[in-house]
Simulated scan of single mutants.
Amino acid sequence: MTKIPGPPSFEGLKRRIAQHRERQDSGRSRDHFVRETYRLGVLDARAKAREWFDRYPKAAYWTEVESWRKLDGDQIEFTMRRLPSAD
């Protein structure tokens, strides 16, 4: 008489998912950039970006506009990125 095996254990799958998530989380923590996203009118968006560049100079903080897009109603959504310190 042949014994039919039961369903597979999900422990191996659970372990692999946990390892994958841990690697993803550790990758994010190595980034070290400070990011802030804004949604402003065109003139206010330019002023906010200029404020960041004045306060956190690009040469010291690697400040940059990481991404931006134009929205309806003359609005700009953008993300500013910089290092936490100039060390």
Score class of each variant (00 low, 15 high):
W68G: 04
R23D: 09
R69M: 10
D87T: 07
T63C: 03
I4N: 03
F53W: 02
A45T: 02
I17V: 15
E64Q: 14
H32P: 04
K70I: 14
R46M: 07
G73C: 09
D72Y: 09
K70D: 07
K70F: 11
A18L: 13
F78H: 00
L40M: 10
K3R: 12
R81M: 05
Y61G: 00
T2F: 10
E66D: 11
D74Q: 10
L13K: 12
R55A: 12
I4H: 01
A18F: 07
K3M: 08
H32L: 15
W52C: 01
Q24R: 12
D72C: 00
G73E: 10
F33R: 09
S9G: 12
E64R: 14
R23K: 10
T2Y: 10
S29E: 15
A49K: 01
L40Y: 06
K58G: 06
R55F: 00
V42W: 04
R35H: 08
H20R: 14
L83F: 01
M80F: 02
T2P: 13
P57N: 04
S29Y: 06
R35L: 10
D44P: 03
D44Y: 03
G41S: 14
V42F: 08
Q75V: 12
F33L: 06
F33E: 00
Y38P: 07
P5I: 04
F53T: 03
A59L: 03
S29F: 06
H20I: 09
D54C: 06
Q75I: 14
R28S: 09
R55V: 01
P5Y: 03
E66L: 13
T37V: 11
S9Q: 10
W62Y: 12
E77M: 05
D74F: 07
E11K: 14
L71K: 05
G73H: 08
K3G: 04
R46P: 02
R55E: 09
G27W: 08
R30V: 14
A59V: 04
L43G: 07
Y56R: 00
T2M: 07
S67H: 06
F78P: 00
R30G: 08
A60L: 11
M1H: 09
G12I: 03
Y38I: 06
R82D: 03
D31H: 05
A49H: 01
A45Q: 02
K58C: 04
D74Y: 08
I76Y: 03
Y56W: 14
I17K: 11
S29M: 13
G12C: 02
E36Q: 10
S29Q: 15
G6N: 13
M1W: 05
E22W: 06
P8Y: 09
R15M: 11
D54H: 01
P57W: 04
G27Y: 09
R46A: 07
S29H: 11
S9I: 08
I76N: 00
Q75Y: 13
Y61Q: 04
Y56D: 01
A45C: 00
Q75N: 09
E77H: 03
L13D: 13
L83D: 02
R46I: 02
L83Q: 00
I4V: 11
L43S: 14
V42T: 11
K14C: 12
W68Q: 12
W62S: 15
T2N: 11
A60V: 03
E66W: 05
L13M: 13
T37L: 00
T79N: 01
Q24L: 15
M1Q: 08
D44H: 05
P84L: 04
T79Q: 05
K48C: 06
A47G: 03
E64C: 13
S29A: 15
